[in-house]
Amino acid sequence: MIGVLSYLVFFATTASILAIAVLGLNLQWGNTGLFNGGVVAFFGAGAYGTLILGGPPQEGMVGGFALTYPMALLGGMAVAGVMAWIVGLLTLRLRHDYLAIATFGVAVAFENLMRNAEWLAGGAKGVRGFERPFREAIGDGFLYNLVFFVAVLLILIATYVFLERLVASPFGRLLRAIREDEEAAQSLGKSPSRVRLTAFVTGSVIMGLAGGLYGTFYAFVSPQDVLPTLTFQVWAMLIVGGAGNNRGAVFGAFLIWGAWTISGWALSRFAPVEAQLYTGSVQFILIGAVIVGMLVWRPQGLLPERLIVSQQGSNPVNKRGE
């Protein structure tokens, strides 16, 4: 049973890290309506930033800053934030499809840079960062994973609380106002482009946080970690969980990552030996079918957005789907 527990802790750690990224995306898409197709770039900036800033000097590479861990993690988030700020300035006036493709392009260019720039990020062989923090004190067995999980969980909860407060604040109302009707918001003297940029950067910093934790957990990051698959995974989590709803975002992360891993596990366990070689393809078909099925069955997500109207007298809560 300890094996099961150990695996569940490990699984939940990865899922929680992904959930943080989904929360970041939810701020951008769910609350502000920004179609960020380059999630993985900001996640990757956080991971690379953290490992390079906190890592020891490596031959033929910039870095070796060996910052203390919290500084490295904050630095990774800052890298993601600065990148988001530049990308945002360039692209945020684009709408939906155009924005999605432009940011997707940013992510492809980011992966490309990491893959080729050996002096910056180790090239295709990736960056070996630093030993996981506190490893000396508590070893690297089950206990470590448990402690790490608790830390990630606390960060997830903190992010969740922060975003819930943010969304309920006047700024959150402003975000939704701009999402629903930009011109109306503008006529009230608000600056949509600045507000959108703020939301975009904040969401990206949160993705960078997730990336930083991810890099810390594996003590390694390579271009293979920043392929577009991750963007797709994070989006699928948000859409299935329910865009606009932070609880939905977290739930979606656990559900999709669960489906992703359980399908592989179940196939390896129950598929006949002769079919084992084909399970990779079958698993992708299953994953595709789950996502398509969810969207056919419940396109608004499992936990849809609760639209709160602040005026008294109107219908206060849209209970649809609750």
Binding site: A100, F232, W235, A236, I239, F284, I285, I287, G288, A289, V290, I291, V292, L295, V296
Partner: peptide
């Protein structure tokens, strides 16, 4: 968009 992504995988 995501349904199409899923279909592509399938």
């Amino acid at each position: 968009v995501f349904a199409s992504f899923g279909m592509a995988l399938i």
